[in-house]
Amino acid sequence: MRDYPGTRQTFIEMDTIPENGKGIPVDHNKIVAEKVSAFFGKVQAIRDIQINIPENSIVAIIGPSGCGKSTFLRSINRMHELIHGTRVTGKILLDGEDVYSLDPVLIRKKIGMVFQKPNPFPTMSIFDNVAAGLRMGGTHDRKNIAEVVERSLQQAALWSEVKDSLSKSGVGLSGGQQQRLCIARALAVNPEVLLMDEPASALDPIATAKIEELLFELKKRYTIVIVTHNMQQAARVSDYTAFFYMGELIEYDITKKIFTAPSIKQTEDYVTGRFG
């Protein structure tokens, strides 16, 4: 791994309050990635990624298309290995435990994911969509499920819009509503971490603003990693920003620093729009 000053110094000052976002003091690394590489067959998509993700923070991952952002995200919750012929090397620790030594089903319950394109289950109602994870995880107590569904939809800022049409189809909603439904669905299984892969890229500015607002609420309870192509979005919502380029982590620091005084030329070029 190349040594970039930014990567090394980043979490030495672990317990400082992030300047960006009215954050919570950081005292614990929720996720630690150690020399993580991921492969598609012989092609290496990410190389020796080293990153600490503090609890209750929002970490944005930025970088040009094809630089391995999605691949890294999918390595964290072990979705990467579902593709035929892929593998991951290195270590990813969740609360100090190696996710690759645990049951993937358990890991995915603890680390929820929201995808770029909203993907509600088409044969299910809004209610059933949110309840799906619970029911198939073995919860059958109706009262409990109803409570969790309501709470999740409220957390996803969708409750007021759908509370009278819970039995209607989930795909009948607008794109932005569908995405919030997917967020609610992910929240319903009570994860600790939320991975979001360009969750707002298919949405209009108003729906995007809603999702961003939501993120501030969510980070009180969850740790969030969000991939975005939108610099303003990364600057607005995240506490820390990681810049990926050609499969490597170039720089990782407090968001404000990345956008105002990055230590590496490539980062500066990218955030100022000179390439990428």
């Binding site: 929820g112 289950f121 992910a186």
Partner: peptide, 14 residues
């Protein structure tokens, strides 16, 4: 669509 399988698996559904 593959995305539906991924959505389900990402919820921790076996």
């Amino acid at each position: 669509p593959h995305s539906l399988r991924e959505a389900a698996l990402a919820l921790g559904i076996p």
